[in-house]
């Protein structure tokens, strides 16, 4: 090897070492805060439950078994864990409905803000962030106050004579949906706004010029070009909606559980930490699959817009 080649080799090796050193803080943080806890949860899901919570350090597949199947305590027959599937299905349905509702409500709102004069946009964005100032628990109770049987909506409608008896809204899936949409809407609006703000309005004019209707321009020009924002917003809403805990507890009345509540039950009253851990890992997997699926299907054509 010539001296020049040797010097190049040394430089290359130093360069690689420096890169590792420089990224060490970030990697440490990811290990401690991200991967580590997940690993612990994963390990717990393969252990046996302790008598008063906690885990016994012996291998047991029962945690995972109980996620999908249930064994009858009297005759030991194995059947599908119907209650779990109902909860999974409700969780998925509510999270999807929340995402769609947030998108339908958030898109016009983000478009409105993005089409204001630049000076007043920041005021509108500021208004959007105001709900974040209040604790989510308080906001959730506030919604309960509005929709309960003696709440503002029911009493107003009854006083107007439009209703004879109050409509049951609180402690239903509907209540959970309203609450989740309300809480997650800003998470949809902000990335949508970021995309819409970058939209070249001349493309909209070009669309109208080429005989597109208002709906045609929206569907064929505005939506495809703001796809990155739609994806980001949808993920930001869908993921926390999937693991909601407080909202279904307060507004669903604890009867209409979502996965989050189920997991809490296992770590609390259920005293079955391995099952809770297995459910948690299941939730992570569901989120991962959903996000990958979503990016695959919605991501590709929009990518070109930033070329």
């Amino acid at each position: 090897m010539t001296d020049v080649a040797k010097a190049g080799e040394t430089r290359r090796r130093n360069d690689i070492r420096d890169r590792w050193l420089l990224s060490a803080p970030a990697l440490t943080l990811i290990a401690i805060a991200g991967t580590g806890p997940l690993l612990i949860v994963l390990i717990y899901s393969f252990l046996a439950p302790g008598s008063y919570g906690d885990v016994k350090w012996e291998f047991s597949p029962n945690g995972w078994f109980n996620v999908f199947l249930s064994r009858d305590i009297f005759d030991n027959t194995v059947s599908l864990a119907d209650a779990h599937y109902t909860i999974f299905w409700r969780t998925l349905r509510l999270a999807l409905a929340t995402t769609v509702l947030c998108l339908l409500l958030g898109f016009p709102l983000a478009y409105f803000i993005a089409s204001r004069p630049p000076g007043s946009r920041s005021i509108w964005l500021f208004l959007i962030t105001i709900p974040f100032w209040t604790n989510m628990l308080i906001r959730t109770f506030a919604i309960a106050e509005v929709i309960r049987n003696e709440g503002i909506i029911n009493s107003l409608l009854m006083r107007l004579g439009l209703l004879v008896a109050p409509v049951q809204m609180l402690f239903t899936d509907f209540a959970t949906l309203v609450g989740m949409t309300y809480v997650h809407l800003p998470l949809m609006v902000l990335p949508l706004y970021a995309s819409l703000e970058k939209l070249d309005f001349r493309l909209v004019e070009a669309g109208y010029d080429l005989y597109a209707s208002r709906f045609g321009v929206l569907l064929r020009i505005i939506v495809p070009l703001t796809r990155p924002g739609i994806i980001a917003g949808s993920i930001l809403v869908f993921v926390p909606a999937l693991s909601s805990y407080v909202i279904p507890l307060v507004l669903g009345g604890g009867k209409n559980l979502m996965i989050g509540n189920l997991i809490e039950l296992q770590f609390g009253q259920g005293r079955n930490w391995p099952l809770g851990a297995a459910l948690s890992v299941t939730l992570v997997l569901v989120v991962m699959i959903a996000v990958i699926f979503y990016m695959r299907n919605a991501g590709e054509p929009g990518g070109r817009a930033h070329g």
């Binding site: 001349r202 669309g207 080429l210 070009l225 054509p301 070109r304």
Partner: peptide, 14 residues
């Protein structure tokens, strides 16, 4: 029945 060629073309990038 009138069409425009825009200053910076305004071609649809997608």
């Amino acid at each position: 029945p009138v069409n425009t060629v825009f200053q910076n073309y305004a071609l649809f990038p997608h």
